[in-house]
């Protein structure tokens, strides 16, 4: 028995301590991400809690009067700003993004698609501060004032338009993925019945990909909600509920940048307010992403 064991030598292995060490190191790399989440929650929670010791949560969440200098922290004015920008951006990116996706997935030939997709990716890679510049130096003076000359230089319409352009590639590319994963057999089935391309796209592909498209739009929405620089530059810094698209507003993100960029002293209520806003923002985007993932899952189950 002993002799055979030596001959085959199946046990004469090194214990491979390096392998074990590397594995632990790699695990720690992956585990770091959990610590980052912990860090985010810690960072947001600590100051949010102390903020709510000074400010009634009810007066924060239910009042629409944001005037930190005079001690009024009614977040609804900022929430309105964030919501109107996101909806406006969606008005731009939703139809354009889905139309682009339909064109790329159903109409364009592969060579055209190969050219257009990377260009759209470049659009998505433009830093948002550049979109702010674009809003201020082109969208407002050359587009909006061509329609309505009295438009203020800081207005929410221009911000919504550039944020829409910024999220357009996200919506287009995710929707296109959803449409392209609709099985070809489904399309062929419809073509075989004599349906036109339009019919196939609108009646077969789009409905089949619907939850994927919805997911793309919600994800774009969540990007718009978190978008900061373009809005901080283009929409100005006037917390108010302004339905007129030519007026200035302020979003939650823009306010955070305004305060953090200035010199609010650590521990002041104003300083605490940006963390309270951060928490609110965090929860809103988390909810939107959750909904988006649910839609994607539904889509995956279908195919």
């Amino acid at each position: 028995m002993q002799a055979t064991a030596t001959r085959t030598g199946l046990r004469s292995q090194r214990k491979r301590p390096v392998q074990r060490l590397v594995r632990v190191a790699l695990f720690l790399c992956a585990g770091l991400s959990v610590m980052v989440t912990g860090g985010i929650i810690y960072a947001l929670a600590a100051d949010t809690i102390s903020f709510f010791k000074d400010v009634e949560p009810a007066s924060f969440f239910l009042s629409a009067d944001w005037a930190p200098q005079s001690g009024d922290f009614g977040v609804l004015e900022l929430v309105f700003g964030t919501a109107i920008i996101s909806l406006g951006a969606m008005l731009v990116a939703g139809p354009l993004g889905v139309a682009t996706a339909i064109y790329l997935s159903e109409y364009a030939n592969p060579r055209v698609r190969k050219v257009i997709k990377p260009i759209l990716e470049v659009l998505a890679g433009v830093p948002t501060v550049v979109f702010g510049y674009f809003a201020l130096n082109f969208v407002t003076p050359s587009l909006l004032r061509a329609v309505y000359p009295g438009c203020g230089i800081f207005n929410w319409a221009s911000a919504a338009i550039v944020v829409g352009l910024f999220i357009l590639p996200t919506v287009a590319s995710l929707s296109e993925d959803a449409m392209r994963s609709v099985p070809t057999s489904l399309r062929h089935g419809a073509y075989g019945l004599g349906a036109s391309k339009l019919r196939v796209s609108a009646r077969v592909v789009a409905p089949a990909a619907l939850s994927g498209i919805v997911a793309a739009i919600i994800l774009g929405m969540s990007r718009a909600v978190g978008e900061t620089m373009a809005v901080a530059i283009a929409a100005g810094a006037t917390p108010q509920i302004a339905v007129n698209p030519c007026e200035s507003i302020q979003t939650m993100t823009a306010y955070i940048v305004q305060v953090a960029g200035g010199e609010a002293s650590t521990g002041s209520i104003q300083y605490g307010s940006i963390f309270a806003l951060g928490s609110t923002l965090f929860l809103i985007t988390l909810a939107l992403n959750y909904v988006s993932i649910r839609f994607v899952k539904r889509f995956r189950e279908a195919y």
Partner: peptide, 13 residues
């Protein structure tokens, strides 16, 4: 999917 500004708050805190 967390907005970049939240990472700013993390860095700040």
């Amino acid at each position: 999917a967390v907005p970049s500004i939240i990472y700013g708050l993390l860095g700040l805190a």
